[in-house]
Write a protein that binds this DNA or RNA. Structure first.
Length: 822
RNA sequence: GCCGGGGUGGCGAAACUGGCAAACGCAAGGGACUUAAAAUCCCUUGGGAGCAAUCCCUUGCGGGUUCGAUCCCCGCCCCCGGCACCA
């Protein structure tokens, strides 16, 4: 053991290895889950171990969350900061396929590498509670969760039009289709009709939406809240029945006020009434159109295509408001999965209906008019909203303002039993079946006699068999179906011939409840522990990427709500506070493998040290906005740490000198404590670090190394540079961790300077400053200002108006401003 | 089109939600130390005028409110993200 000398230099690799070892030995990062009196659950989104390793974006995310956890720790909370691996799923399986290694072999290897990187970063992780979603002890409970939802009637199987990715050879949830392409591989998604398992997330649409606006339940980033709102997509309106030969045709509209302008109906090609409506002579054309529509992939069906096509079914319906006989058409601009799959065409007030009417020469009747218009000209009126519009050509409703017209017509429809008020959501049920190998098998058995039978809980987990041929194919059937010995089982209910469900569940089901499992990893007999949940949940702080706004973050809320309604959880919102971190770009450009500019953290950690790397990441931009990673930037934070190191080596216990006091060291010190504390609480890490740099510069300027200040400096630096701070703390004579030290408090009175410089403006332009004591009266400051030639040069006589903001600013208003003569 | 977040020096950015615009850092230039380089230290660095004290201009664009606007209001432009033939 070498003795430290006051002048020995900062060697990150030595310091970091030492403290990582010591944290492990001392169990520094392992809070008492049973007895914690001030528990703080600090969660960050766990990674997919599906690549060579973590990239700088992951490090940025984890570091920011870790800084917050360490700050809370220093404030005296017992912080639980777990880490795990989202190791099931297409991303991991695709990676295994590409590498040509079985995922069961590859993924544990990746996890080891991820763990190594994470430990090197110096996160405050409690490794006792590490989990992997691929562990049977984990996915046993994922399957259990499926059964809970199944028994609650929240899981069901139906044959439906689903998104099929031809490259990944599986169905996808709507949330995993981005602009008609696969979220994972970017292939255009096809439509297939398959029997799939769904979760009834739509049952919770209203609650999921309402809680977003409830600050007692959720404090989330605005961008995430907005994305979820858009995704849930609530619309208010009415459904209206149009009588026809084949029975009533129900349409949904958000604008019942335009009902009198409905001159035709349009049904989606897949609409179930089309067969019955179609007249004999039109049958061939209608069939051809339906076939063509079905053949289109989702991209071209939903995106672009402004020209409208469609065919007449030969049938007519009656507009219940006007009594007019109106033709029934089909067109692919009407989508079966939204509303009722049928619309009333109002060509005068809807752009799409207008284009359709123009193409097929359908009548256009205007029923809304602006102020001072009669509405007699039958042209399309592109109007968004209802403001300034009134109804015309609308029978007894004419002349009502549009907003009132909506309410009046709904009331009339309800009275006449022609329709009713209705809220429509864009959100669809969550399709969780995947025709892939690498996931938890859905715990259902199909019996020839009993039908679908849930696997009894005592038989869980349904183990994923180790099979060599796990490649997916085009059949729409999971690779597991090829394995008879696994596929064929006796029925758990009657013992008769039966077979297993061969689909696995969506990865997002694995990740929808992992925060519960972290708290209970040592329990084999239960998925989570009520007493621990009671103590630690909901999660106090959750940090992650906004790309999961309508995926993981929505699904997790749904699962918590479902469990809550089953009496399993006593909260329904799992993440009290969520903050979305920003994204990192490299030299101004997005990082991507094809560009070859992906930053691998390891080399930087080796060169600069983890503490410098962490500090740089937190300094390079606002945490919630991200920033630009530039190699040159690392030298700044490293120089900063070197200077702090040097300050620590020469620090001494003494009183401040007159010169130091004169330079306002005490004020700067207390101001810094305040700024760093508030900055950390708001995740404004870049400004917190800047404040510390300012204090350091101020100390160095007067050569001050007073021990009390240096100690508090080290504590405040500890969230960013934990190993470094521990080492400094020890060298300052401590025998316990710096994280036991407690967060420094500041004296508000001492953050204010006693003598201040008040800017003096003339007509709003700063012309000079006067030094006055804090709290000086207006008279005092004005008198001082008018003694200053730099001011009087511009005033030329008595000011006509004086604005004085105490301790802030003096503004003298003069009528004839004198121009500066230089 | 609708919703959310942005637009400030050569660059990353800061500014008590109305009060000295550009803190902190990077890069660049000059100087000191050194045989030299690196490291370190000191100085300069938004634009323009001036020998200078100093003055004028400057927060995407155009208006407005105000003694005073990066901040508030109105009308635009551009960038990032979400939703979107959604009725």
């Amino acid at each position: 053991m070498t003795e430290h000398h006051p002048d020995d230099s900062y060697q990150p690799e030595v310091v970091e290895a030492k403290w990582q070892a010591r944290w492990a030995e001392r169990h520094t990062n392992e809070p008492d889950l049973e007895g914690a009196t001030r528990p703080f659950y600090n969660l960050m989104m766990f990674p997919y171990p599906s690549a060579e390793g973590l990239h700088v974006g992951n490090f940025f995310a984890f570091t920011g969350a870790d800084v917050y956890g360490r700050f809370k720790r220093l404030q005296g909370y017992q912080v639980f900061e777990p880490m795990g691996f989202d190791a099931f799923g297409i991303h991991s399986e695709n990676y295994a396929l590409r590498i040509g290694t079985h995922p069961a072999e590859l993924i544990p290897r990746n996890i080891e590498n991820f763990r190594r990187q994470l430990k090197r970063l110096g996160g405050m992780f409690d490794w006792r509670h590490q989990l992997s979603t691929t562990d049977p002890d984990y996915y046993r409970w994922t399957q259990w969760l499926f059964l809970q939802l199944y028994h609650a009637g929240k899981a069901y199987k139906k044959k439906a039009a689903v998104n099929w990715c031809p490259r990944d050879k599986t169905v996808l949830a709507n949330e995993q289709v981005i602009n008609g392409t696969c979220e994972r591989c970017g292939s255009p998604v096809e439509q297939r009709f398959l029997e799939q398992w769904f979760f009834r997330i739509t049952d919770y649409a209203e609650r999921l939406l309402a809680n977003l606006a409830d600050p007692t339940k959720m404090d989330w980033s605005a961008s995430t809240v907005s994305a979820q709102r858009n995704w849930i997509g609530r619309s208010e309106g009415a459904e209206i029945d149009f009588p026809s030969e084949a029975g009533p045709i129900r349409v949904f509209t958000t604008r019942p006020d335009t009902l009198f302008g409905g001159t035709f109906l349009v049904l989606a090609p897949e609409h179930p009434l089309v067969d019955r409506l179609t007249a004999g002579s039109e049958r061939a054309i209608v069939e051809a159109y339906r076939k063509a529509a079905a053949a289109k992939d989702i991209v071209s069906r939903k995106v672009g295509e402004k020209e409208k096509t469609g065919v007449f079914t030969g049938a007519f319906a009656v507009n219940p408001a006007t009594g007019a006989k109106i033709p029934v058409w089909i067109s692919d601009y009407v989508l079966m999965e939204y509303g009722t799959g049928a619309i009333g065409g109002v060509p005068a007030h809807d752009e799409r209906d207008f284009l359709f009417a123009l193409t097929y020469r359908l009548p256009i009747v205007r029923v809304l008019a602006a102020e001072g218009e009669t509405g007699s000209t039958p042209v399309y009126e592109p109007s968004t909203g209802t403001s300034g519009l009134r109804l015309v050509n609308s029978g007894q409703f004419s002349e009502l303002p549009a907003e009132q017209g909506i309410q009046a017509i709904i009331a009339w429809l309800e009275a006449e039993q022609l329709g009713k008020r209705r809220v429509q959501y864009r959100l669809h049920d969550w399709c969780i079946s995947r025709q892939r190998y690498w996931g938890p098998p859905i715990p259902i058995i199909y019996c020839d006699a009993c039908g679908p039978v849930p696997v009894p809980e005592k038989d869980l987990p349904v183990l994923l068999p180790l099979i060599p041929d796990f490649q997916p194919d085009d059949s729409g059937i999971s690779p597991l179906a090829r394995h008879e010995e696994w596929y064929r089982v006796p029925c758990p209910r009657c013992g008769g011939k039966a077979h297993r469900e061969t689909d696995v569940s969506d990865t997002f089901l694995d990740s929808a409840w992992y925060y519960l499992r972290y708290l209970a990893t040592e329990f084999a007999d239960r998925p989570f522990d009520p007493a621990r949940n009671q103590r630690w949940l909901p999660v106090a702080s959750y940090i992650g990427g906004n790309e999961h706004a309508v995926l993981h973050l929505l699904y997790s809320r749904f699962i918590a709500m479902g469990l809550h309604d089953q009496g399993q959880l006593d909260f329904e919102e799992p993440f009290r506070k969520f903050r979305a971190h920003g994204t990192i770009v490299k030299d101004g450009a997005k990082m991507s493998k094809s560009r070859g500019n992906v930053v691998i953290p390891d080399q930087y950690v080796s060169k600069w040290g983890a503490d410098t790397f962490r500090t740089y990441l937190m300094f390079l931009g606002p945490y919630e906005e991200g920033g630009d990673f530039r190699d040159e930037g690392l030298s700044g934070p490293r120089r900063f740490l070197d200077k702090v190191w040097e300050l620590v080596q020469r620090c001494e216990r003494r009183t401040l000198t007159g010169e130091e006091l004169q330079h306002g060291i005490v004020v700067k010190w207390h101001q810094t404590k305040k700024r760093v504390t508030l900055g950390l609480e708001q995740l404004s890490y870049n400004t917190a670090i800047a404040a510390l740099m300012e204090l350091l510069n101020a100390l160095r300027a007067v050569n001050c190394s007073e021990r009390k200040i240096v100690k508090e400096f080290v504590i405040m630096l500890a969230p960013f540079a934990p190993h470094f701070a521990e080492e400094c703390w020890e060298r300052l004579g401590a025998t316990t961790s710096v994280f036991e030290a407690g967060w420094p408090d500041w004296d508000e009175g001492l953050t204010l300077e006693q003598e201040i410089e008040v800017p003096v403006q003339v007509n709003g332009k700063t012309r000079s400053r006067v030094r006055v004591p804090r709290g000086a009266t207006e008279e005092h400051v004005v008198a001082a200002a008018l003694r200053d030639p730099a001011v009087t040069k511009f005033t030329d006589g008595a000011p006509s108006k004086i604005i004085y903001v105490k301790d802030r600013l003096l503004n003298l208003v003069v009528r004839n401003a004198v121009r500066g003569k230089g």
